[in-house]
Design a protein around this nucleic acid. Structure first.
Lengths: 206, 206
DNA sequence: TGTTATATTAACCATATGGTTAAACCAATC
DNA sequence: GATTGGTTTAACCATATGGTTAATATAACA
């Protein structure tokens, strides 16, 4: 066969994402990643020069993919109402279908916020469309035109992202407090989207 | 002197909280904890039989303290409006003054949700007042009486907790996207409380 | 004072882990 | 068929790490 189904490099990246997401950087074992990728441990150091290098590569790849998707959403001009409907939906569905992404970013956000910030900054810089980051200008304009009630774009985005992403990390916590087990069907996320969109629109739209 | 300023046991617990919060379970070094606590490593295994045991003890202690405070808030009967004002305020201020708590719980939530769930369940069971967990009954009643718009108590609480806790974990992320550095003064949290309470009341109160 | 239970330490130990190396394999190209 | 350059592996290595032990200090107490 001319090409392998997956290159060793890609197999390593995929396996590494799973392992890092499951155990964090320190808890991840290079050996385990190699075995899961079906290659010798030395291969891993051949492609990525260290565990740290591999980690950064995974983070880079995964974040870049994520930003590409978000960018697609916010490129066309939107009304605040449209934005508050589409962003959480995209975000929640994206996270639901990539649980490893959420956990990886979560770990990094807790442990080493500066690192993920610089990774994101790097990606944003490379995507010229994001440059001065139009989104925050847009949000400011929405408020200036009296379309939304929240004046501070940072608070605005925090509210949006918080409600969206917490559906994943915080679910077990709420389950524990409530004593209720939330069904793990796709339905849960559909209901979650509804609730979030509702709160955001009623809460921040004028 | 009859008693030491702090018992070795407590010194270990305090140092362990710091270390586990900073590096996660796997990243934490027993040696480092011992040194920070000013005792010999063997002492640590003398009081807590293993690294895992120490970790659980820390989690237990920290969660119990947290629940005690939350309980104080929700014990008296409240209107939904009062609840939506006081809960986020308490939550955000609590997290702001105990960043280690947030990170420790965050780690555990991502890596091992079942564990923290059972810890919480244990604590709740021991606090008899929480038993059938009245809070969720109360929320249901609020909706039945037409006082709030969200019918599902799980969604209701998720919205509340998400907006409150994300102020900490997610802040660097929003900062990176926005390119703005949020001032680290106490003011930030005050503004955050205002925004969250606003969204929640406008978004879920009828 | 002798006894006992609790605290505390220095010195070890077995193992796991990130990382290296030198040799082999393999496909393309000359 | 020899050369070359990327790919892959088994066998190592140094070190860090969780955990143990046996001996000692301390305080309470009979």
């Amino acid at each position: 066969m001319a090409e392998k189904i997956v290159s060793s490099r890609d197999a390593i990246l995929a396996a590494a994402l799973r392992e890092f997401a499951a155990r964090g950087f320190a808890g991840a074992r290079v050996e385990t990643i190699a075995r899961a990728a079906g290659i010798n441990k030395a291969m891993l150091f051949y492609y990525f020069s260290s565990k740290e290098g591999l980690y950064q590569a995974v983070l880079q790849e995964v974040m870049a993919e994520f930003f590409k998707k978000v960018q697609g959403l916010i490129t066309p001009p939107l009304t605040p109402g449209e934005f508050l409907e589409r962003f959480p939906k995209l975000y929640i569905e994206l996270c639901a279908s990539n649980p490893d992404f959420v956990r990886l970013v979560g770990f990094d956000l807790i442990q080493n916020p500066d690192n993920i910030c610089s990774v994101m900054a790097g990606i944003i810089t490379r995507m010229s469309e994001f440059k001065p980051h139009p989104l925050f200008e847009v949000i400011r304009r929405w408020h200036a035109q009296g379309q939304i009630s929240e004046a501070d774009p940072v608070q605005f985005m925090m509210n949006v992202v918080a409600l969206s992403i917490f559906s994943f990390i915080g679910r077990p916590m709420v389950e524990a407090i409530s004593g209720m087990r939330v069904a793990d069907d796709g339905d849960f996320y559909a209901r979650r989207v509804t609730s979030v969109v509702n709160v955001l629109k009623r809460g921040m739209l004028k």
